[in-house]
């Protein structure tokens, strides 16, 4: 494993986390307000996704014309294409938890270092959920 790949992954995680903080998505109240269309609706999250896709979509097209990544042997693009029960059932369960807690994996990890008890409890429960789903597979 080369040091450049590690440095790139570290910087990528940092940039990702800063983006989540700047966008306001580390605040679960903001996420729940996005989902509360008939209540205190805050459409900010749509702008987060829009801003991200506006960069990633053309960027991925550009990368698609390249031979491979800088510090690894090949691009690992996902290959699955079928719409199955696992995909949609999993997404439905994920969305229910996302609405209930206002957190998804990126934002909760980007804010857990701030030390709020609720975020630490959520991270522990989420990791338990990861392990349970892998065991069930």
């Amino acid at each position: 494993m080369n040091i450049k790949a590690l440095a790139a992954a570290l910087l990528t995680g940092l940039l990702f986390g800063v983006g989540l903080i700047v966008s306001g998505m580390t605040n679960p109240a903001k996420v729940q307000n996005f989902l509360d269309i008939s209540g205190s609706w805050d459409p900010s999250l749509a702008f987060v996704m829009g801003g991200a896709i506006a960069v990633t979509l053309p960027g991925y097209i550009w990368l698609g014309r390249r031979q491979g990544p800088w510090f690894a042997s090949a691009f690992q693009w996902p290959t699955a294409s079928d719409l199955d029960v696992r995909l949609l059932g999993g997404a439905a369960v994920f969305g229910a938890g996302w609405g209930l807690g206002g957190f998804c994996p990126g934002p909760v990890l980007a804010s857990v270092s701030l030390g709020a008890v609720g975020t630490m409890v959520f991270v522990a429960a989420m990791c338990t959920g990861f392990v349970l789903a892998k065991l069930a597979r």
């Binding site: 994920f94 807690g101 989420m126 392990v131 789903a133």
Partner: peptide, 8 residues
């Protein structure tokens, strides 16, 4: 919520 997010 955390378990549902992780599992789902």
């Amino acid at each position: 919520a955390g378990v549902l997010v992780g599992f789902g």
